[in-house]
Each structure stands twice: as C-alpha cells, then as structure tokens.
C-alpha cells in the first residue's frame, strides 16, 4: 500500500503498542499477582523491555517523519498552543519513565514488587500520551480526524495490541484467569472495532463534503485495504476464540494455545497497521483546499 506516512504509522503504532503493553501488564497481570501476593517472576521484566523497545522504535520513526530532524530539540518550544509540542514532551516523559522503570527492574530484580507504583505512573503517563497524540489529529482543518473516533481508535489499538502480545507471553506461565481475560480482550476489541465501523462510516457520510470524500477514499481508492482489514478483524476474532478455548487449567502445559495466540496476534497487528494506513489516507482538507 502506498503511503507517504509510513514513519507516522510506525511511530504511532509503536508508541501505542508500548503503552498498551504497560497498561495491560499493569491491570491484567501485575494487579492479580499483587492481589494474590504471588512473587513477581523475573521473566516479567522482559515485558518492560519489550515495551521499551517499542517506544524506542517509535521515537526513531518519529524522527524519520521530520524533514529537518536537526532542529528537533526546538520542537518543545510551543507547548503553550501546539499539541505536537505537547506530544513530543509526552513521548519524552513516558519513554523516560519507562526507561527508568525498566532499568530499575533489571538492576534491582528483587525490588520488583515495591516498584509497582513506577509502573502505575508510567501506564498513566501512557494513557495521557495517547490522549495527546489523538488531539494532534483533532483539528478543524481535518474533519475526518476531528472526531471522538480518533482517540477511541488509538486507545483500542493500544489495548488490543498489548493484550494480544501479552497473551503470547503468558503461555506456559500466566494464570488461567489472566490468560482468559487477555483472550477476551483479544476477541472483544476487534468485535467493538467491527461494530463501530458502520457507525463511523455513517458519521462520515453525514458530516459534510470532506468527510464524504473520506468515505469515497475508504470504499473506492483503498477498497482492497478496507476489506482486508475487515477480514483480518474477523480472523483475529476467530483466532481469539480458538485461543480462548485452547486455554487449559494447567497453564504450564498449554502448548495448544501457542498457534492460535500467535495467529491472533499476527492478525491483530496486520489489522492495526492497515487501520492506521487508512487513518492517514483520510488526511483530507475540507472542501479540497
């Protein structure tokens, strides 16, 4: 698929993946662990590292988007009015928090339990970051973006990418409950995304010339991508269900889960990439200006 916005696609997805991992990790893995007062396995530190890696990839690609990266440090100078300035600050704060959290976890593996507040803060910073990211696109000059669907889409992307990846990670080690809950997320977000699609499209068709063009772009110019994304959603749901029913109570012995979880994760990632490409294809100025 042709797009001049690949750096932004990768940047936004990578940051959202990172935040999604932190969020899901915190809520669906750490939180139950803490409640059950089970010791924090060392292996879980790797989750932080993966989130960090995703953030680093995101930051690198954010630079590739710039025509003149040499001036990048100046981009913090307009936090007062520029959501982009705020986003860059947000990325810096979130990534720094994540970096510190990850380092501390590796440096002081035994302190894991007492560092949960850091993970909480990082996750909250991530939630704020995603909100700021979505605000960048919510501008009057781009009516197809200037909608509640933008933050909704970003948050759902974060959650589903985080959940499906962590489901893979949880194979052979997570609790039955956490596996089930991750599988439920893996299924339900694509279901919601599918259900929202007609809502979004009917909104597009009813909100002015430019948005109507947005619909045309979806259904004509990018018809293949549009339907591919539909199929991928359905596949993700199917694989999600397969995974869900492959989960056995003996969670250390669920080889069966691997294939469906991997397939679900792959389908979800591919769906989100196409989803994001379609999002940027909706970069339409009102009325053709």
């Amino acid at each position: 698929m042709k797009s001049s916005e690949w750096p932004l696609v990768i940047f936004t997805l990578a940051m959202q993946l990172s935040v999604g991992i932190m969020l899901i990790y915190d809520l669906f893995i750490l939180f139950p662990l803490y409640r059950s007062r089970v010791a924090l396995p060392m292996k879980y530190h790797w989750i932080l590292l993966i989130a960090l890696l995703a953030a680093i990839i995101g930051v690198i690609f954010s630079f590739l988007h710039l025509g003149n990266p040499a001036n990048a440090p100046r981009s913090l100078s307009n936090i007062g009015t520029s959501w982009l300035s705020r986003e860059i600050s947000g990325v810096l704060i979130y990534s720094s928090l994540l970096l510190v959290t990850t380092i501390l976890h590796f440096v002081m593996p035994s302190a894991g339990r007492s560092l949960k507040w850091l993970i909480d803060i990082t996750a909250v910073a991530g939630i704020i970051l995603i909100f700021i990211m979505s605000r960048i696109y919510m501008i009057p000059a781009r009516p197809t973006w200037n909608t509640f669907f933008t933050p909704l889409g970003f948050y759902m992307a974060a959650i589903v990418m985080g959940a499906s990846l962590l489901l893979l990670f949880q194979i052979n080690q997570g609790s039955w409950a956490s596996q089930k809950s991750l599988a439920v997320l893996t299924i339900s977000i694509p279901v919601i995304q599918l259900a929202l699609l007609p809502v979004y499209m009917s909104w597009l068709s009813q909100s002015g010339i430019a948005s109507g063009q947005g619909l045309t772009i979806l259904l004509q110019n990018h018809m293949i991508a549009f339907y591919l994304r539909l199929i991928l959603y359905l596949l993700a749901i199917a694989f999600g269900f397969w995974a869900f029913f492959s989960i056995r109570s003996d969670t250390t012995q669920n080889r069966l889960l691997f294939t469906p979880a991997l397939l679900a994760w792959a389908a979800i990632l591919a769906a989100q990439i196409i989803d994001r490409l379609l999002f940027y294809a909706q970069n339409i100025s009102p009325d053709g200006f």
């Binding site: 001036n71 100046r74 981009s75 913090l76 100078s77 307009n78 009015t81 520029s82 959501w83 982009l84 300035s85 860059i88 501008i139 009057p140 000059a141």
Partner: peptide, 11 residues
C-alpha cells in the same frame, strides 16, 4: 492563525 498555533517550534 491555526498554523502558528500548531507549529511545535515557533518557526
């Protein structure tokens, strides 16, 4: 101006 508000660098 929307462009001025949006610009992260004040360029």
């Amino acid at each position: 101006p929307a462009c001025v508000k949006a610009c992260p660098t004040k360029a």
